[in-house]
């Protein structure tokens, strides 16, 4: 999803989307570090263990995963065994890779739908130690699947329009900072 391939309004939208996700992810990781440190500090220095930290850490990490997967996909963090595909003539390789993407897209959309059902059916529960509805925590799977679906669809469409397989380094959403 390279900025130069897209019309300007879409570029702005993509940049905003990436900026928001990156900020959430960085804050999430920072929160994990701070809370885990506080947990040790309160048990050993203060002598009053935190009751909520363990649960909060688990759920923050799951949300980091959900929000980070789409970006990770586009940045080529997910590796497959491409050896056999590379043995094929370029045209056939492209078709096979795109077919794989269609399968993944279909799967992630299905998971998003059932992820919604899962969160909805278990919405009556609350987390154990923090006063949050399990719906807000369980829905992370649906959100993450939708985001991956979005990124896979974007890759699929761009590859289709260009007719060639983009290099993995090309699939970098431009860095905002620095």
């Amino acid at each position: 999803m390279q900025a130069r391939d897209l019309p300007p309004p879409l570029t702005r939208f993509v940049r905003g989307y990436v900026a928001i996700l990156e900020t959430l992810l960085i804050s999430g990781v920072a929160a994990v570090v701070v809370i885990a440190t506080l947990q040790v500090f309160f048990r050993y220095v203060v002598g009053a263990s935190l009751s909520w930290s363990e649960e909060a850490l688990r759920y923050i990490m799951i949300w980091i995963t959900s929000l980070g997967l789409g970006l990770a996909y586009s940045r080529g963090e997910m590796i497959g065994m491409e050896l056999l595909v590379h043995l094929l003539p370029p045209r056939a390789a492209l078709v096979v890779t795109q077919a794989g993407r269609v399968l993944v897209l279909a799967m992630m959309l299905t998971i998003a739908w059932y992820g919604w059902k899962f969160a909805w059916k278990t919405r009556g529960g609350t987390a154990t130690a923090i006063p949050v509805s399990m719906f807000l925590i369980h829905i992370s799977v649906a959100v993450g699947s939708l985001l991956v679906a979005l990124h896979v669809a974007a890759t699929l469409v761009l590859t289709f329009c260009r007719g060639t397989e983009p290099r993995s380094t090309e699939f970098h959403i431009p860095e905002i900072a620095e």
Partner: peptide, 20 residues
């Protein structure tokens, strides 16, 4: 700060991939 940003972000991506 930019370095920290990059490190935290790449940590999130690598972890998300393992968690998936």
């Amino acid at each position: 700060l930019p370095r920290l940003r990059r490190v935290f972000l790449s940590t999130a991506m690598m972890s998300a991939t393992i968690y998936l």
